[in-house]
Design a protein around this nucleic acid. Structure first.
Length: 216
DNA sequence: AACTCGGGGCA
DNA sequence: TGCCCAGAGTT
């Protein structure tokens, strides 16, 4: 667990300020959707797959299956065909159908709100649940993926590899009202500059305050 | 905690 | 070719 030292909190303040300056203060999810259910499906599809490719298939997908009931009664082979280019298509098709069926049977066709309810759905883990909570219900939530984990360590915001510990560390130090915004900004930073093997520190707007910066 | 699932994009 | 991608489920 990280300790809220003065040095860490000063860095948090500066990092948040620069993220907003760089990326704007209205960042949310990358995934195209018109309602909670569509975001849930898109997020399930996005596991181990870039958002760009998810957004390529979702318009046709949601046109073919407009409602929860359409997914709940879908033919799995046909659904697999519709999402084939995503990867993991068999498991994801199965999960999406099971998910839609459980929404109908247990939740009145609505997307539930709590972590426990969301993660009880097939194909929905902690990350997906937090995407829904943060983007749809605007409940304070932190999404921990490989980008968030890596950058949080590099910035000295956590020293753990356990996603749940990282989540709690970030909850302790980030300004609560903007968790999901900083979350998506950090992910974007990770995709473009602060990469896993080859971090482009020379292009980074936080190089001067980053403890892991390789160019001083 | 390790392992498996997998197609497409990009270097 | 080889590596990577807003993970989740099973063992």
């Amino acid at each position: 667990m990280i300790r809220k030292t003065k040095a860490v909190m000063n860095r948090v303040t500066e990092v948040c300020k620069r993220l907003d300056e760089q990326y704007g203060s209205d960042m949310r999810t990358y995934l195209d959707h018109r309602n909670a259910f569509e975001l849930l499906i898109a997020t399930i599809l996005s596991a181990q797959c870039t958002d760009k490719r998810v957004n390529m298939v979702t318009p046709d997908l949601f046109a073919k299956y407009p409602t929860v009931h359409d997914f709940a009664t879908a033919d799995i082979k046909e659904l697999e065909k519709a999402i084939h280019s995503i990867g993991f298509y068999h498991a994801k098709a199965k999960n999406i159908i099971g998910c839609a069926q459980k929404l109908e049977s247990d939740f009145g066709g609505e997307v539930p709100r709590t972590i426990e309810e969301l993660t009880s759905l097939p194909g929905v883990g902690r990350k997906t649940a937090n995407v829904i909570r943060g983007n749809i219900y605007e409940d304070p939530s932190i999404v921990v993926d490989t980008h968030v984990k890596r950058i949080s360590k590099r910035l000295g915001f956590t020293n753990s590899d356990d996603p749940v510990v990282v989540e709690h560390d970030l909850m302790k130090i980030l300004p609560k009202e903007n968790w999901i915004r900083y979350n998506i900004q950090i992910i974007y930073l990770g995709r473009t500059i602060c990469k896993a093997p080859n971090a482009k520190c020379s292009e980074c707007f936080m190089s001067d305050i980053c403890p892991s910066c390789k160019i001083k």
